[in-house]
Amino acid sequence: MTDIAPAIRLRNLRKRFGTRVGLAGIDLDITGAHLVGIVGPDGAGKTTLLRALAGLLEVEAEVATVLGYDLAGDVRALKTQVGYVSQVFGLPRELSVYENLRFTARLHQIEKADFERRAGALLERTGLAPFANRPAGALSGGMKQKLAVSCALLSNPALLLLDEPTAGVDVLARDEIWGMLCERGADTLILISTSYLEEVGACERLLYLDGGRIVAQGTPEALRAAVPLELYRAWGDDPRAIAAAARALPYVGEARATGRYARIEVPRAATPGAAHVLHDLAALPAAVLVAEQAPIDMEATLLHLARGPHA
């Protein structure tokens, strides 16, 4: 456990890049240890927020403290307590896996014995031990990201900021990275942006950004419960035809074929009731073999937020 309690407090945090608005006024309080997911459409400000929290950007704000440090002041001490993984692999490619870890240890002034113990544990945990002497540039995409996360974890940071660390990474490497984060969850405040629905659903708390603002936040369950939609699945031989036919029903919002069924969304404000909807779906001209009402999932939640009333 680190000495300083992880905490983030932001009031009206703003960032401009020339005429473009990166962050348009972020208000946020995070206390205690959490695994916090940052989600939202491309260009919403996720990367900018993570970089601001790492003390990498000059920002404007009424209040902006991270781990007790003011982002408007000297952030050098903050940076020693932050682990950061950028969207694009940014470690020296010509250095080996081990050399990258040692280089990171020197930046953080980690004692040799501590370094050997921590690096050894991380190499074992990630399965990178057999590749310790391989140049980072010659690693597969999944191994590169495991190395980046290992370097970020090496100093036992109080705050870990991860910008899409699992983008383009296979499911097994994602599981390993996610496992490492969950193990740290109790000791470290982790903010992670991700596009994987499975990972979004596994976060303790979500911040949904759009247009440089947080437009929704809460637990995944709370965000799901707040979606004012009913979700139906209509199974049959031709889900595309079913989706097209369902769109003709006057109360249907969206209908889309995916695999073996059509996903059909009905706004709660317009629904004639589940029994009525299921009856209508069964009677569609495209042959529906089975229709069911399904719980609102993370996909429906994020798609709803993407076109929500804030937009």
Partner: peptide, 10 residues
């Protein structure tokens, strides 16, 4: 679709 949000993936 690597790194693309859920709406644009759909």
């Amino acid at each position: 679709t690597a790194g693309v949000d859920v709406h644009n993936r759909a």
